[in-house]
Simulated assay, not measured.
Amino acid sequence: MDKIKVVVRMRPMNERETLAGQSSAWSVSQTTVSLAGSDKPAFAFDAAFSHLETTRNIFDSQAKDLIDDCCEGINATVFAYGQTSSGKTFTMSGDKNAPGIISLAINHIFARIAKSTDLTYTVKVSYLEIYNEVVNDLLSPGNINLKIHEHMTRGVHVGGLTETLANSPDHVAALISKGEANRHFGATNMNERSSRSHTILRILIQSQRKESVAAGKQSGIRVSCLNLVDLAGSERAAHTGAEGKRLKEGGSINKSLLALTNVIEKLSKEGSDRGHIPFRNSKITRILQPSLGGNARTLIICTVTPSTGFIDETISTLKFASRAKSILSRAD
């Protein structure tokens, strides 16, 4: 069983890029992404998806088995990484015409629960954002600047975070909508509704055999956590036109994504070459530490832009994905 899977998704050209006279610079096959017309080696991953592939295809082929394992008691994380306006939020959250990974995962969890004949389940949901390196509770907006703790049994966790019992996909969707209303967004030249924070939807799944519940026993309880992460996009001020508040937000976003890149870089090295793993350099790497360095299953979806105007940014994302892939290759 792969602990870490790394896939790449190439979005289609958008109207802004087409009007600017840009064109698609990349070629995508089943597992590789390469610069069209270049003799440089292709970037290779567990899977690569062109703009013709749906989010449902990505979920069914890459995420569904991870969600199944989480329902069986194994911690799991799915996160999307890429430059701003590369399709991360569309991939994770979707829109009215195409459900994202988050809603597909939630529907799958409750479908499994409905079909279970021997287990009883409890599902709890929490939703947080990391904005300018401050952790805020999106379900209780007055609950801000939360602290990250480490416990012998609970591991790394956010103290004081609201957990709400959920009984259906619609209930979870309502909680997400409530959280989104409290999230930080802002307009930039590249995205009219740009995510200015990282978010983590945390789904705690507890299961126990029905006969044990009926007998009032506390044994045989399995608890696992699914983290569904929408990272804010890396960005260059020259492209986004960011200034003032937006520039400060962008700097914080880039700093935390650099910390994530450094952690992935260290983890990809062998033995003594690793040195210290700087999980504590950012709130996002601290919270994701169990997923990146522990025994959890992790799916990394790197979203990239095909345009000739953003070749450097796409290469940067592909290099990040390649380093993450090397962690898996070494583990195998």
Rank of each mutant, 00 (worst) to 15 (best):
D273R: 12
K88R: 09
D68E: 11
I130E: 02
L161H: 11
L288P: 03
K124V: 03
N262C: 00
T54Y: 02
G179L: 08
G216Y: 04
N191F: 04
Q206R: 03
K210N: 06
K115R: 12
R16T: 09
R183Q: 07
Q206Y: 00
N107L: 07
R196G: 04
G179R: 08
G100S: 13
C225Y: 03
L104E: 08
N281D: 15
N189C: 14
D46E: 06
T308W: 09
V125E: 05
T122H: 02
R274L: 04
T308K: 14
L318W: 11
D68C: 02
D230C: 11
N182S: 12
V125D: 06
A44P: 00
N143I: 11
H157D: 05
N295E: 14
A238H: 05
H149G: 01
V158T: 08
G186M: 03
L260S: 10
M13G: 06
K40G: 05
N182H: 15
R280V: 06
A166I: 14
L66Y: 06
G87T: 07
V125F: 15
I205R: 02
F79T: 11
H171T: 09
S140L: 13
M13Q: 07
G159K: 13
L231W: 01
L161D: 12
K3D: 11
S322C: 00
V33D: 10
L247P: 00
P290E: 15
A331C: 05
A63M: 08
R280D: 14
G271L: 10
F49P: 09
K217E: 14
V156M: 06
E192I: 10
P278N: 11
V304W: 02
R286G: 05
T120V: 08
S34Q: 10
I253N: 09
K124S: 12
S61T: 14
T199A: 15
G179P: 02
I300C: 00
G159Y: 09
I109S: 09
P12F: 06
T84M: 07
E53G: 00
V8S: 05
I148V: 15
I102A: 10
V158L: 07
K88G: 04
K115S: 14
G82F: 05
R323M: 13
S212N: 15
L19W: 00
R56N: 07
T162G: 07
R209A: 07
S85F: 06
E129I: 13
I200P: 02
R222C: 08
T298M: 09
R11Y: 04
G21V: 13
S316Y: 11
K124M: 09
S326Y: 01
G186Y: 04
S256M: 11
E129W: 09
N281C: 04
F79A: 08
G309V: 06
E53W: 01
E243N: 12
G250Y: 07
